[in-house]
Simulated assay, not measured.
Amino acid sequence: MNQKKSFAAITLLSAVGCIAAACGSPASGGGSSSASGSAPYEIGMVSALTGSGASSGQLKVDGAKLAIQEINAKGGIDGHPLKLIVEDDQTTNSGTVNAFEKLVSQYPHLLAIIGPIRSTEVQAINPMIEQSGIPVLIGGTDPQLTHENDPWIFRFRPNDSYSARTMAYYLIKKLGLTKIAIVHSTDAFGTGGDTYLKKWIAHYGGQVVKDEGYTNHSTDYTSIVTALKSAHPQAIATYFTYGSDLAIFLKQVKEFGLNATIMGSSSITSNTVIKLLGSSLNGDYGTTDYAYGQNPTSVTFGKALEKAYPGVKPDIYSSYTWDAVRVLTAVVKKSGTNHSAIRKGLLQVRNFPGSEGVYNFDSHGDGLHGYTVVKFKGATPTVVHVFNFYNP
């Protein structure tokens, strides 16, 4: 058990012996996160506390802490309170690797780890996840993340095959807009969304008149907006990883007088975009996994978050971590703390009401299978239609 193993393509050898010894591995069937007496059960989290994603990272923490406060107020899990341990990923891939390595090497009794919301960061730690044998509850939406034969990844947001389908269907079949331009990040999230969006636009009889990629953290989209304007799209569908980038892009679209219907991926509904653009979002559309009022649990969560953290608005960052802690708690209560038992229990979750939707995990580890379309009235995203593609 103390023999060290190496992670593929990873040189953090000092952590590996601890992972093999304390946390188990897929080959050994998973370790246990047992705690004696009434000691706390620990949940790890990789989140941005610094860097460009710090504001959204704090929302992730807020959502998880809210769930933990609610669960602990009811006695925790069989008398064990829950404790959240957060490591800063610094909004970088390398920082994510370091944060994950620290969690698995220094905290041997974690029930699970709440992983990144950005797909590129999940990709960065994928080899480590598989080797660790710890359930990792992710928010990254690149469809491939749960299709790479890693049995320890569980997604608590719907993947982008569903968001792309929702965007294309609504633009073409509901709004009658067939000439569509796509603007997407060139990272894993953006390229995955672009691939599926082109597929579904064609499926529903639409036409991609322009397809433009950009690099994260760009500060000027003039060349892209100019190219879009020359293509005369009826609608612009976007996959932006960072809300701050999307805000710059949308501001320039409006400044250039590009009159096309906006349909954004979930980042358009983030607190970052709403704070930066306000009522100028009026009339724009978005597809999102969390919108206040999309289901009864979304309202319960939204009210609780605003009460616990005055001035903080619920969004996709806080909702999925709130859901993840609650689902994990239900599984541990039923299945125990062994990692393999938790994994098996997560795969068996059916009809669990979450703020983001009803969780039904498939064999790949995807828990949600639909998206909500919202339309902005001023700065407020209002629910237009909820799509659920779950087919058991």
Rank of each mutant, 00 (worst) to 15 (best):
D150M: 11
L110I: 00
S119D: 14
E121T: 08
N149I: 10
S119G: 08
R165F: 06
I138V: 12
D160F: 12
I117G: 13
L110Q: 00
Q123G: 13
F154I: 10
K173Y: 03
D142C: 10
L145S: 07
P151I: 11
I182F: 11
R118N: 15
I180A: 14
S105E: 11
I153T: 11
A112M: 04
L137C: 01
D150H: 11
Y169S: 08
R157S: 14
K102S: 15
Q144G: 09
A168V: 11
R165W: 03
G140Y: 14
I180C: 14
L175C: 06
K102Q: 08
N159L: 09
T141Q: 12
K173I: 01
T166G: 10
I180N: 14
I113W: 01
L175G: 04
H184M: 11
S161V: 15
P116Q: 15
K179M: 11
S163Q: 15
S132T: 06
I117Y: 15
L145W: 06
H109M: 01
E121S: 09
Q106R: 13
V104E: 07
E101T: 15
H109A: 01
P127N: 02
I138N: 06
K174R: 14
T120P: 05
T141A: 14
R157W: 04
D142S: 15
E148M: 12
T178W: 04
P151C: 08
K102V: 08
Y170I: 03
Y107T: 12
G139P: 01
G133D: 03
R165M: 10
I125F: 00
Y162G: 09
I125M: 00
A181T: 14
P151W: 10
I113F: 04
L103M: 08
L137D: 01
G140W: 08
W152R: 09
Q131R: 08
G139T: 06
I125C: 00
T120I: 12
S105Y: 08
I180W: 09
L137S: 02
I138F: 08
S161P: 01
